[in-house]
Simulated assay, not measured.
Amino acid sequence: MTHIVVKAGIAALVALTSFGATLTGAAAAGPDYGIYVQYHDRDRGPPRGWHGGPPPRDWRGPPPRRDRCSSGLAEDKASRMGLRRARVVDVSRRVVVVEGFDRRGRDRIVFANERGCPVIRR
């Protein structure tokens, strides 16, 4: 019975000493105080017209819609998935099909024609 009490006491002693060692290591880093200055450079802002007026007009029209899977995005995603010489072979209202080569030969990946190009099947 005394062996069990001695072993439990040694285990408690080891636990307490390791707990104290972790506390001193954590307390070594103190709070960092400093003075920070925010600087705003007017030349880094948006482009402006003459004499600081409104920005120049952009005649390219509205930006392209981002709620569909573009063919470039589908090709990039297929090449990141391991498809070499990836090219889009079919685009419909629902799917974008990309073909290329992987380790085994010809392969095809079908993406949904939605935002982010989720994979339907490989």
Rank of each mutant, 00 (worst) to 15 (best):
M1H: 07
H3R: 06
I4K: 10
I4Y: 12
V5R: 13
V6Q: 05
I10W: 12
A11Q: 06
A11Y: 11
A12V: 12
L13M: 07
L16V: 11
T17P: 07
T22G: 15
L23N: 09
G25R: 10
A29E: 09
A29K: 12
G30A: 15
P31R: 05
Y33K: 11
G34T: 04
G34K: 10
Y36C: 07
V37E: 12
D41I: 08
D41S: 14
D43V: 11
D43Q: 12
G45Q: 13
P47H: 12
R48F: 09
W50I: 15
H51Q: 15
G52K: 06
P54Q: 14
P54N: 12
P56V: 00
P56I: 02
W59K: 02
R60Q: 15
R60D: 12
R60N: 15
G61W: 06
P63D: 04
P64D: 14
R65E: 04
R65Y: 04
R66N: 13
R66C: 01
R68D: 04
R68F: 13
S71A: 14
G72L: 05
G72Q: 14
L73V: 12
L73Q: 13
A74M: 00
E75V: 05
K77R: 12
A78Y: 02
R80F: 02
G82H: 01
L83F: 02
R84F: 05
R84L: 10
R84E: 06
R85D: 08
R85G: 13
R85P: 00
A86W: 01
A86E: 00
R87C: 07
D90V: 14
D90S: 08
D90G: 09
V91P: 02
S92D: 04
R93D: 08
R94Q: 09
V95H: 07
V96I: 09
V96G: 02
V96E: 02
V97K: 03
V97F: 03
V98F: 05
V98Q: 00
E99A: 10
G100C: 07
F101D: 15
F101H: 09
D102C: 00
R103E: 14
R103W: 05
R104C: 14
R106A: 13
R108S: 06
I109W: 01
I109M: 13
N113L: 04
E114M: 08
G116F: 05
P118G: 04
V119Q: 03
